[in-house]
């Protein structure tokens, strides 16, 4: 479904063109404009958000000459896709090694957030990596499911299954915590 995702921000792409052309003010503006998007992905999906944030930008900047500011894809989708591929690579490098963490850190957000948004954030945190990636990229950043499938190198049906599992778990958590 495309109606339930964030719209692309096409109007910012001329700014990207100026930044690519070397305008220092435009560069600063692009980072300010899209930094929160990249940070949001890193914060929710990366094992080391700060490290990933810089690595993703570095990859994006190196690949900028392949981004078409006047093409069909918005910069937001383009950089989200770069972030996604980086995180998939990172995930594969880690070989899905579990992280030993104090459970009170896992439990605390579930207990302390009494508002719906906070509980939703906490529930997203609890999702398995593969499901969390799909939810965050598709629903929070508007990345189409077929693009996620291409980046993960799996059929789009697999991504849809993950999306429904993830949404099911999130909704279940919200209902049970009421």
């Amino acid at each position: 479904m495309s109606s339930d995702v964030r719209p692309h921000r096409m109007e910012t792409d001329p700014l990207v063109a100026r930044a690519v052309g070397g305008d220092p003010l435009a560069r600063r503006a692009v980072i300010q404009q899209f930094g929160p998007l990249v940070w949001s992905i890193c914060r929710r999906l990366a094992s080391d958000p700060e490290d990933s944030y810089q690595a993703i930008w570095e990859k994006a900047l190196k690949a900028l000459d392949r981004f078409d500011p006047y093409g069909a894809a918005a910069f937001s989708t383009w950089i989200a896709s770069i972030a996604h591929r980086h995180l998939v690579d990172e995930h594969r490098r880690r070989q899905v090694r579990g992280t030993l963490v104090p459970v009170d850190e896992l439990v605390a957000p579930m207990v302390e957030h009494d508002d719906r948004m906070g509980r939703l954030e906490a529930a997203i945190e609890q999702l398995p990596d593969g499901l969390r990636r799909v939810v965050v990229l598709h629903h929070l950043h508007g990345v189409p499911l077929d693009r996620i499938a291409a980046d993960e190198d799996v059929p789009v049906g697999t991504i849809k299954s993950r999306l429904h599992r993830a949404r099911g778990l999130l909704a279940q958590t919200l209902v049970e915590e009421r």
Binding site: M1, D4, V5, R6, R27, R28, I31, Q32, G35, P36, L37, V38, W39, S40, C42, R43, E50, Y53, Q54, W57, E58, L61, R116, M117, L120, E121, V135, H139, L140, R167, L170, A171, L174
Partner: peptide, 24 residues
């Protein structure tokens, strides 16, 4: 759920990170 997810905030990263990106 879709609306609630889309409404989640995107906080800005720490300024030091953006400075590092700009330098890069």
């Amino acid at each position: 759920l879709p609306d609630a997810l889309a409404a989640l905030p995107h906080p800005a990263p720490p300024p030091s990170l953006d400075r590092a990106v700009l330098a890069t």
